[in-house]
């Protein structure tokens, strides 16, 4: 299958690359661009592990084609921190032990970031609903919910 030239905007930078059209965003990020922070758990849209942001919205990179994403802003976990400074969600996840094995963490952080962008002070139930598409087998979600609440509080200048 011949490759297609693509220009993808990932984490604020344009990347020119060549990939066959049937290569998913997950494969291109991990295998062509070396951005292995995006993980995979099923490759069928059944776990949320591979979540990235496209124009700020969480999507499943295992079911997204880069060929449809030219000109869109793609954000992976590698793009979450600012220069030398962690995103408040990353800080809160680290401090509260919300990442155990850490495998689902990138997808959850990005999903939570989209939530806080839309709804800076979500209720616990709203956080549960926003994260209902991200399976975690380690944490029982408790510390994840706590960390999103803490990050929201801090972002709002509450603590």
């Amino acid at each position: 299958m011949p490759k297609t030239l693509l220009r993808l905007s990932v984490n604020g930078e344009d990347h020119d690359l060549a990939a066959a059209p049937h290569k998913t965003l997950l494969e291109v990020l991990r295998e062509e661009m070396g951005l292995t922070g995006t993980k995979h758990g099923c490759e069928l849209g059944e776990c949320g592990t591979c979540t990235v942001l496209v124009d700020g919205r969480p999507v499943l990179s295992c079911l997204a084609l880069p060929i449809e994403l030219e000109g869109r802003a793609i954000t992976t976990v590698e793009g979450l921190a600012g220069a030398g400074r962690l995103h408040p969600l990353q800080q809160a996840f680290a401090e509260l032990g919300a990442a155990q094995c850490g495998y689902c963490t990138p997808g959850i952080l990005l999903t939570a970031r989209a939530l806080l962008a839309d709804n800076p002070r979500p209720t616990r139930q709203e956080i549960r609903e926003a994260l209902a598409g991200n399976l975690c087998r380690c944490t029982g979600y408790t510390k994840i919910l706590d960390a999103v609440e803490l990050a929201a509080l801090r972002s709002a200048g509450g603590a």
């Binding site: 979450l80 990353q90 680290a94 401090e95 963490t105």
Partner: peptide, 8 residues
């Protein structure tokens, strides 16, 4: 290892 895990 929390920092490594939250940054991917």
């Amino acid at each position: 290892d929390a920092w490594a895990k939250v940054t991917g």
